Simulated assay, not measured.
Amino acid sequence: MRKVLYIFAISMFITALGCSKGNEGTKPAGDKPVNPPPVITPTSFTAADATAAYTAFNRYFYDASKKLYYGSTRRDGVAAIWTQAIYWDMAMNVYERTKDPAQLTMINDIYQGNYNQYDGYNWDNTTTWFIYDDMMWWVMALARAKQLTGNDVYLQKAKSGFERVWNGSYDAVDGGMFWDFKHSGKNACINYPTVIAAVRLYKLTGDATYLTKAKSVYAWAKANLMDASGRIADHKIGNNPAGYEDYTYNQGTAIGAAVTLFKETNDQSYLNDAKLVADYTRNKMGTNGLLPAEGDFNEQGVLKTIFAQYIMQLINDGGQPQYMDWIQTNVNTGWKNRDTERNLTFRNYAIHCPTGDIQSYEASSIVTFMQLVPPKQ
């Protein structure tokens, strides 16, 4: 027993010497320091998180009986007609990511819910549809749904919607698209989506007139709504100077229109435009690398949801991975600052999501980003 105690005492003495600051650097030259294993902390959302975010979004905002989305967690009114199309795009993103057959059913359900709500997509109903850009968001989504599902019903609705908007909105004298029935101005929110919809319809039908229209509208928009820095104006009214207001959805659809035309024509100038617009968004908008917190309890909360779609198109289809780290940082920050009780995210990525009533608009962008953006490895 005394021998054991003696050995124990000697070992404690040696240990004490080894831990003493006075013994640092006294190891023989041949010894290698033993470093503890690194502590690994999560730095990125995961695929499971992407699913959890979408599940939470539907739990708080989706009406499974009406197959429509609410405007807020109060669930006391449906979201705006054009944002329903944006949420339908979100559902398509989830299906592309997961290939879950149940999500394909969700895509068809959302179409049917909006069919029931909005007069069967009757484009001539000027009560349901009161501005052209609301229609064009749906035309874009319908064309994409045809691409994704092969359902010809979606294509027919997209074609008839595009024809209705083109005949009522396009300025055959001076070019460009009017955003409203009164032709009060030509806004980015109708011109760039028209380009995207037209190219999608060209790819679906082979009708070259769609591509001609896309090029024409893009040329007008570039000349009238885009400056040399890549900043996109919100509108152009008559002969007045363009009205420049920084909105991520305008930046996003400008990127999407340019990348879409680049893919069809292989004209490098379109890709150069897309990069210029993306650079302006990254370098001039937002704070500390985070996208701006648009939408103070209004529909603008959905704008970054649209931007997500098209910046990822630039990264993937345009072959521009230099934007990925910036986007991943935004997504990870927004997800980290979620309301952990509800798994809901917020329009302002830099702060914690409020725990009270929030809108589906302001809760949607991080969810969409997470379906499109790969987690950091």
Rank of each mutant, 00 (worst) to 15 (best):
N151P: 13
F262E: 03
N23W: 11
A221M: 12
N283G: 01
V195D: 03
I311R: 04
G252D: 01
M136T: 10
A363R: 10
N122F: 05
A242T: 03
Q117P: 05
D279H: 06
Y210C: 07
G30T: 05
Y247M: 07
Y280N: 03
N288W: 04
D124T: 14
V277K: 11
A197Q: 12
G176K: 11
A79D: 06
D317G: 08
G175F: 13
Y323G: 14
G243D: 11
S65M: 02
A64D: 15
L5S: 13
L290Q: 14
T127C: 00
Y69P: 05
W166G: 03
Q300M: 01
N298G: 06
D63W: 09
G168D: 05
P36D: 11
A145Y: 01
N332C: 12
N125H: 05
N58A: 08
Q103F: 00
L225Y: 04
T83N: 12
A52H: 10
L148F: 08
F45G: 07
L261W: 09
I7Q: 06
W129R: 06
I40R: 12
A242Y: 02
G206A: 12
T281P: 05
A53Q: 10
A219I: 03
H235Q: 02
V139W: 05
M370G: 01
Q156S: 14
I14Y: 04
P193H: 10
Q359P: 00
I327V: 15
A102C: 03
M177A: 09
G30R: 05
Y115R: 12
G230I: 08
T333C: 10
D119T: 13
K336L: 15
T212R: 12
